[in-house]
């Protein structure tokens, strides 16, 4: 098993953060993991992305070129990374900010109105966690418990009070994608 994930969006949407959470959770579940950020000057105000690999074998290239899954937070990232997903791969789209459907018919696509859901939860900053919740619900790559266990490791102990809100965001993301699957069956 090797899952190669691209997570992309605007700088500030928390794409690096959910990448780190996913990586930490994978490590806690004794999988081989790597996290690699884009660190070019384009991060400031432009697009930001990171590569996450979760594997049963030692991780080879940490650079994700052909993703098995992509979490896409904004339109420019959709245009850039939609074509890189392997056949049969999974695409998770933040439909609040991406106003078009996927052009691919050889991949599974999930649309999650992450900003609207985050807004309902009262904090726009958790839109990334909504997307992560949807991803975990579909792929079962790690458990929500592992994500929450890694939360203070990634963000520091002083952010522990934010765990309940983030847990809710993960669950709402999962619920959104469950509803979508139910509607298409």
């Amino acid at each position: 098993m090797e899952e190669r994930i691209t997570i992309a969006g605007f700088g500030g949407q928390g794409v690096m953060a959910i990448g780190q959470l996913l990586t930490y959770a994978g490590m806690l579940e004794n999988k081989n993991v790597s996290w690699l950020p884009s660190y070019g000057p384009e991060m400031r105000g432009g697009t930001a992305n990171c590569s996450v690999v979760i594997s049963s074998e030692a991780v080879g290239s940490p650079v994700v070129v052909n993703a098995t899954s992509a979490i896409i937070m904004n339109k420019p990232s959709m245009d850039k990374f939609e074509p890189t997903i392997v056949e049969g791969g999974k695409l998770f789209v933040n439909s609040s900010l991406v106003d078009r459907k996927s052009n691919r018919d050889d991949i599974e696509v999930y649309y999650i109105p992450a900003n609207e859901i985050a807004n309902e939860l009262g904090n726009m900053k958790v839109a990334n966690m909504v997307m992560l919740g949807a991803y975990i619900e579909v792929t079962k790559m790690v458990s929500i418990e592992s994500i929450l266990e890694g939360f203070t490791k990634v963000f520091g102990e002083d952010k522990a009070h934010l765990i309940p809100l983030n847990k809710e965001a993960l669950e709402k993301g999962a619920e959104s994608v469950r509803n979508q699957i139910a509607a298409t069956v």
Binding site: T23, V33, S34, W35, L36, P62, V63
Partner: peptide
């Protein structure tokens, strides 16, 4: 290199 400096691993 920049990659090993920037990447995270266990």
């Amino acid at each position: 290199d920049g990659m090993i400096g920037q990447m995270m691993e266990p």
